[in-house]
Design a protein around this nucleic acid. Structure first.
Lengths: 337, 337
DNA sequence: CGGGGGAGGTTGTACGTATAACGTCGTCCG
DNA sequence: CGGACGACGTTATACGTACAACCTCCCCCG
C-alpha cells in the first residue's frame, strides 16, 4: 500500500475491478445473484482482496439505519459471573449477525449524566443489569429497545425483563438448612438496593418462617470480602445466642464470613454453617468448599439476548424465570449441640 | 413524541428553532462563538431538549472519519485483573473524550477469521492483550493504531508495547524464598505460550540458579483451579525428594496448589510454601493468605491507553516497564526440617 | 458618502455505503 | 421480423452530520 494513502473504499475497489461502485456493493453484500456475472464477481472479490478493502462501518450504519450492535450494561466485572452473561449473550448475538459491546457501569468512570459516554458506538438496543432508575429512564427517553436483567417486572417502565428464579434459590437454601436442624439464622445481605437482593431477603424470611421457632437476624455489607468480614464479625459479637447458620447473598460475602469465623475461632461447618449464591470458582477454592446456589450465567445472557432480539423484531419475549440449583458442599452440616 | 415517528435529526431541531441545520450543528457542537447569537443558541438548545434530540453517531463518525472509540481486547474476564485494566484505560480515555469498548477475546465466541465480528463498532485504535499472532497481523493489515499489552517488544511487528516488569516480580519471589532457606522448587506454570509466562519462567530459573544447590522442577496447567489441582497432585506424587516451595504463575493456580496440598495432607506453610501472581481477592480469601506478586491492573490500563493516545497523535509512547511488588503473607515460611 | 469589516447567519457539499430505478444488449419465440 | 424478456450492469440518490464558503445586513470611519 502506498505511503500516506487512506483506507480504500468501495469506489477504489470498483476502479481496480473496472466496474461501478454499485456492483462492488452488490457482490460484497452477497446480493448479486442474477445481477452480476460470476466472472465479474470474482474480479471484484479479487480486487477487494488485493486492496485489503474493509467496508466503512460508519457509512454502512448510516445508510442502513442500524448497527447490529447492542450494549450489555453490567454492574461490575470483579467476578466471573458477568463474564458468563456476556459469553452467553455474545454467542446468541453472533448467531444472528449481531455484536455485543460490554459496558461496565461505572462508579467513577464516565459522567453519570451520560451513561453512554464510554460507549459512543451507535446501538440498536440495550441489555441492562442492575441499572439505576435515572439511567434507565435516560435510555427509555432514547427510545432504544431495552431488556432488563434481574429487575422488578412491574417497575421497569414497560421494558422487557429476564430474571433468574432467585426466590426459588433461597427457598432451597432455607429448606436445606431447616432440614439439617438449624433454627437460628443470620442473613448477610448485599448492601445494595436492588430487586434481586430484595427478593432474596423476602424469600429467605418467608420460607424460614414456615418452620416453628426460627429466628432470623440480618446485617448488610458491600459486596467485598473485607466488608463482609467486618460486618459478620460485629454481627456475631452481638449479645444473645449465636446463629448456627449464615445465609449470604453472594459467594464473596460468604468468603468474608469464613474469615470472620476463623478469626473468632469458629469451625465450619461444625460450629457454623455458611451458604452463598453464585457458585464462583472461589466457592471450591476455600476450605471447606461452599454450599451455594448455582446461577447459570451463560444461560442468563443467552435469554437476555433472545429477549432483545424478540423486542427488535416486534415479538413479545418469553417471560419465564430461569431455574437455579442448590449445590450442597462441605460448609453446611447439622448444628452442634 | 408522536407514535410512529422516527428519531429526530438536527434538521428537525432546526425547523423547530427556526434556523438552518448548520446553525444547529454549530451550537450543539460548541463552535458558535461569534457565529450565532446567544439568544438564537438558547432557542436551538431548547428545541433540542424539547425533541429529545441525540446526534446520530453513525453520521457523525462518517463525517469526521473517526469515532473516538478504541477497542480493548482481553483474553478473559474470569478474574478481576482485566476489569482493573479496563477501568484504568476507560478513565484515561474519558479524560480525552474517548470511549473504550471491551472485547473478551473469544475461544468459542465469534469466528476466528474476523476478530472484530463482535465489535462491529468503527474503531480508532486497539489495545490488545495476549493476542495470537494471526489476529495481530489482521489488525496490522487494517492499519489500525495498535498497542500491545504484555507482549514481546521485539515480536510485535513494530506495534507499541506496554509491559509489567514481571521479570522483576519473579526475581522478588525467588529471592524471598531463597532467603527463607528453600532449595527445592516446583514451578507451576500457566500452560499458555505467551511472552509474559515465558518471561516468568525464565526470570525464576535465572534467579534461583544464582544460589548454590537449588533444584527447580516444572509442570504446567491451564489457568483454572481444577486443572492446577490435578497437575500439582501428580507433580508432587513424583519420586524423589519433594519440593518445599511451589511458585505459581497465577493466584488461581496457587488456589489449585492449596487444594492439592490439602488432599495430600501437607500443611501450608509448614510443609509447603506457595506463591502466586496477581493479588486477586481470592488471595486473601484462602487460608493461609497467599504470598503473591501484586500487579497494578488499573495503572496498566492507564499506561496502555496513554500509549495508544500517543500513537494516535503521532508521538512515540513511553516504553518503561511498570513496577510490581511482592506482598508477603502467610503462605510462605522457612522449610520444615 | 463610499466602503471596510464584523456579527449573524445560510447554502452547499462530502464522508462511503446500499439499493431503487433505469439502461442496453443479445436471444428466443410467436 | 418485432418485441418481450432475461442477463448484466450503471446512474442516481439518500442516510445525518460538520464545516468551508458564501451572503447580508448594519455600523462606523475616513
Amino acid at each position: 500500500m502506498a505511503p500516506g494513502s487512506t483506507r480504500p473504499t468501495s469506489r477504489d475497489v470498483a476502479q481496480v475491478a473496472g466496474v461501478s461502485q454499485a456492483a462492488v456493493s452488490l457482490v460484497l453484500g452477497g446480493k448479486w445473484r442474477g445481477r452480476v456475472s460470476e466472472t465479474t464477481a470474482e474480479r471484484v472479490r479479487e480486487a477487494a482482496r488485493e486492496l485489503g478493502y474493509r467496508p466503512n462501518l460508519a457509512a454502512r450504519n448510516l445508510r442502513l439505519g442500524r448497527t447490529r450492535t447492542v450494549l450489555l450494561v453490567v454492574p461490575a466485572l470483579t467476578t466471573e459471573f458477568f463474564a458468563g452473561v456476556y459469553t452467553g449473550a455474545a454467542r446468541v448475538a453472533a448467531e444472528h449477525g449481531f455484536g455485543v459491546v460490554l459496558y461496565p457501569s461505572p462508579e467513577g468512570v464516565g459522567p453519570a449524566k451520560d451513561p453512554f459516554h464510554s460507549a459512543q458506538a451507535a446501538l440498536d438496543g440495550v441489555i441492562a443489569s442492575s441499572m439505576a432508575p435515572e439511567a434507565l429512564s435516560a435510555i427509555r427517553g432514547d427510545q432504544l429497545p431495552l431488556v432488563m436483567l434481574d429487575s422488578d417486572p412491574r417497575g421497569s417502565l414497560g421494558a422487557a425483563t429476564v430474571n433468574l428464579d432467585i426466590a426459588d434459590g433461597l427457598r432451597q437454601v432455607a429448606e436445606h438448612l431447616l432440614a439439617l436442624g438449624h433454627r437460628r439464622f443470620l442473613h448477610l445481605a448485599a448492601g445494595i438496593p436492588s430487586w434481586t437482593f430484595d427478593t432474596r431477603a423476602r424469600s429467605l424470611a418467608t420460607h424460614l418462617a414456615q418452620a416453628p421457632g426460627t429466628s432470623l437476624g440480618s446485617t448488610r455489607a458491600p459486596i467485598s470480602i473485607e466488608d463482609a468480614l467486618t460486618a459478620t464479625e460485629s454481627a456475631l459479637a452481638a449479645p444473645g445466642p449465636r446463629p448456627t447458620a449464615i445465609v449470604c447473598d453472594d459467594d464473596l460475602l460468604a468468603a468474608g464470613a469464613y474469615k470472620a469465623a476463623r478469626r473468632l475461632g469458629l469451625r465450619i461447618p461444625d460450629d457454623l454453617s455458611i451458604t452463598g449464591v453464585d457458585d464462583l470458582a472461589l466457592a471450591t477454592a476455600i476450605d471447606p468448599e461452599l454450599t451455594t446456589v448455582r446461577l447459570d450465567a451463560e444461560l442468563f445472557g443467552e435469554r437476555g439476548m433472545q429477549a432483545l432480539l424478540a423486542v427488535l423484531e416486534g415479538r413479545t419475549p418469553a417471560q419465564d424465570a430461569i431455574p437455579v440449583e442448590l449445590v450442597v458442599r462441605g460448609s453446611t452440616a447439622p448444628p452442634g449441640p
